[in-house]
Amino acid sequence: MAEQDLLETGQPLLIADSLSKSYGRIAACRDVSFSLYPGEVLAIVGESGSGKSTLLQLLSGQLAASGGQVSYRMRDGITRDLAALGEAERRLLFRTDWGFVHQDPAQGLRMAVSAGANVGERLMAVGWNHYGRIRESASDWLTRVEIDVARIDDAPRTYSGGMRQRLQIARNLVTGPRLVFMDEPTGGLDVSVQARLLDLLRNLVAELHLAVVIVTHDLAVARLLSHRVMVMKGGRVIETGLTDQVLDDPREPYTQLLVSSILPP
């Protein structure tokens, strides 16, 4: 019920307006516009070099755009141009209201400190200072991502690939973000580990009503997790729509090629 109402009446959380990025004469990303609403999962699909990772970096303010603008509705309800935020404001956004799940967990975790500290660190960054409460929250999140709490004092370098990825997710979600960026979150994992992670992500996203922008080259991941899909090629969005529409009734030649290239299960 809540979900319906929010989707129907809410204002966009993130707005991309004519976003472009070029490196000299090479356009990595051309004229991308869309709105993302609370609780909405948007998948960006396309092959390597299509500009999907560049777009993710532009959206999350890690890369300055050559043209266009990204706006975000802050927790106070005011929509702001990300480029106009101060460095401190941007960092706070990243620590609290946003998450970023990297393909390689080593990029999103500190591999040498304990799992508990990896999760607790984000809480401390937003002012939590009660050790017992931080540890309690960290244990709670390890359980939610199906990591045995007995492993809380172990460093993630002792974890398997799937566990590391789940720990990275816990670290991102502990501050209750409203928007999470994901870059090929199931990329380097075995198929069985992937299925478990996808199922976990799917439940967490629905339960926490997260808005997600997920970059993937795997159409099965897009189908399972996303409401909407944008297909990118050569830096441009060539087709966009409801996920099942685009995958079951693709219109563009390139999208038809992508869809027809899926191996039957």
């Binding site: 979900e3 319906q4 989707l7 129907e8 609403y37 909405e40 409401h227 909407r228 409801l242 529409q245």
Partner: peptide
């Protein structure tokens, strides 16, 4: 719009 289609499917 996609969002409207999703709402129609939910309700």
């Amino acid at each position: 719009e996609p969002r409207q289609v999703l709402n129609v499917r939910r309700a």
